[in-house]
Computed example of a mutant assay.
Amino acid sequence: MTTVFVRHTVSDYKSWRAIYDAFSSVQEANGVTAEAVYQATDNPNDVTVTHEFATLEAAQAFTKLEDLTKAMQSGGVVGTPAVWFTQKV
């Protein structure tokens, strides 16, 4: 199992969350088996998201989706997200 962590700042959490929730069907169609959203305790616009995939290849393909880039832009992601891939051991 591969987990992708994405940390980014959003301009407004509530607006971002609406876009994120509407994107769930795209996540499912592209191999996301589980997901979670976390906010920093001192800044609700500092968001970390995890997505789990069966394989590293599926995770990498998901992060390159044009629809994902568009959703992040319309959701108000500020700057370049930090993205890293992990394997459960």
Rank of each mutant, 00 (worst) to 15 (best):
M1D: 09
M1N: 07
T2N: 11
T2E: 03
T2C: 14
F5I: 11
F5P: 00
R7V: 01
T9I: 12
V10K: 01
S11Y: 00
D12Y: 03
D12I: 12
Y13K: 01
K14F: 10
S15Q: 14
S15H: 12
W16N: 01
R17G: 00
R17W: 01
R17C: 02
A18C: 05
I19F: 02
I19V: 15
Y20M: 04
Y20E: 05
Y20R: 08
D21C: 06
A22G: 13
S24N: 13
S24C: 06
V26F: 01
V26C: 05
V26P: 00
V32R: 03
V32H: 02
A34C: 11
A34I: 09
A34K: 11
A34S: 15
A36V: 04
V37E: 04
Y38Q: 03
Y38A: 10
Y38F: 15
Q39N: 15
Q39P: 03
Q39G: 08
A40I: 03
T41D: 13
T41L: 15
D42I: 07
P44C: 00
D46V: 00
D46T: 06
T48R: 08
T48G: 06
V49G: 01
T50P: 00
T50V: 14
H51R: 06
H51L: 11
E52P: 02
L56H: 10
L56Q: 11
E57N: 13
A58N: 04
A58C: 05
A59K: 03
A59P: 02
A61M: 09
F62E: 00
K64N: 14
K64D: 13
K64R: 12
K64P: 04
L65E: 10
E66M: 09
E66N: 14
D67M: 11
D67V: 11
L68G: 06
L68F: 14
T69P: 00
K70M: 14
A71G: 13
A71W: 09
Q73S: 12
S74I: 15
S74R: 15
G75I: 03
G76E: 01
V77W: 03
V77C: 11
V77T: 15
V77M: 15
V77K: 12
V78K: 10
V78Q: 12
G79Y: 02
T80G: 04
A82N: 12
A82R: 06
V83D: 05
F85R: 00
F85A: 02
T86K: 01
K88H: 07
V89A: 12
V89W: 02
